[in-house]
């Protein structure tokens, strides 16, 4: 309930944040975004950083921009601000549906898209969505910006390709205005985190899947693509038979040794759930896909 003592600095710009990180490089330093992962860890005594650098008010890190090709999401954009933008659902349907299911009302008002992705909690809702929407994570450090594909970004539990002197400044999603997105999640009844969550973004034309990316949370020690499902969908007609076939391949290629197993669910049960929730996500995609007749 009571965090250990620390020094607090508020950054007013990205460069100031980077300077502050450099200045306190010797100390245990954490960036404070929405704080909904960090502060609970600090209050429980699990985490006691020496220095907090608050980037929540850096103006440049807020807001959603759409230029037709790309939807840019400032890292400090809160979940509720993201959901509130029409462009979000239009251009990044998978991410949109995942963000809607993060946490609860109050958490969505404070938590941020960038903070979530940088934290890389495998049971959170956004790693899988970042993968499904083919996001690029923009990481900024003393040497400027780096752009990392979501596919290369997540290393493991809370581990990412962010250097100690860097921060996530933006998440970019290629516009998927033609695509349909869905996120099916089994939340832990206590924490609300994903025991399993499957996020799909698919382009369906005339009943046939043109392209599909599928990401999963809660299953492995990081967000992962479900490649078997993607293969099964590619070029197939989106119907119950395809959904069955795809769901059957949900765990294909996953290293079962690194599958999550905890109080909430064993690895074995998670394997079962990935299939079930893949099916549910795909059924939602099917529901949301305009029928060929209606589309015409």
């Amino acid at each position: 309930m009571f965090p250990d003592g620390f020094d607090y600095y508020e950054a007013s710009s990205v460069s100031e944040a980077i300077d502050l990180m450099a200045e306190h490089a010797g100390a245990e330093t954490e960036l404070l975004a929405g704080g909904h992962s960090l502060l609970p860890a600090m209050k429980s005594g699990l985490s006691s950083p020496d220095v907090l650098i608050d980037i929540g008010d850096v103006e440049a890190l807020h807001g959603v921009t759409a230029d037709g090709d790309t939807l840019g999401i400032g890292a400090m954009t809160t979940y509720s601000d993201f959901i509130g933008e029409d462009a979000s659902e239009e251009h990044a349907p998978a991410l949109y549906h995942a963000v809607r299911q993060v946490g609860d009302t109050q958490v969505r008002n404070r938590g941020t898209v960038g903070g979530n992705i940088a934290h890389a909690d495998p049971a959170s809702d956004l790693p899988g969505a970042a993968l499904a929407s083919d996001a690029t994570i923009v990481v900024t450090g003393p040497d400027g910006e780096r752009r990392v594909s979501a596919d290369d970004f997540f290393f493991g539990m809370y581990a990412t390709d962010i250097g100690p002197d860097e921060l996530v400044t933006r998440v970019e999603v290629p516009s998927a205005a033609d695509a349909v997105g869905a996120y099916a999640k089994k939340p832990s009844p206590s924490s609300g985190y994903a025991m399993v969550g499957v996020c799909v973004q698919a382009t369906v034309d005339g009943g046939t899947v043109q392209s599909a990316r599928v990401g999963a949370n809660g299953v492995m020690d990081r967000g992962v693509r479900l490649e078997g499902v993607e293969d099964a969908l590619a070029g197939a007609s989106l119907d119950e038979a395809t959904i069955d076939a795809a769901a059957d391949r949900a765990t294909e290629g996953l290293d079962t040794a690194m599958m999550m197993s905890d109080l909430q669910a064993s690895a074995e049960f998670r394997e079962q759930l990935v299939g079930t929730y893949t099916r549910r996500a795909l059924e939602r995609v099917l529901d949301r896909t305009p029928t060929p007749a209606a589309a015409d």
């Binding site: 609970p40 832990s188 009844p189 206590s190 924490s191 109080l263």
Partner: peptide
């Protein structure tokens, strides 16, 4: 105790 917080001990929510 492994269920030592509301993160791990499921106190039912409105949806439950």
């Amino acid at each position: 105790l492994l269920t030592g917080s509301m993160q791990d001990y499921a106190v039912p929510k409105a949806e439950h």
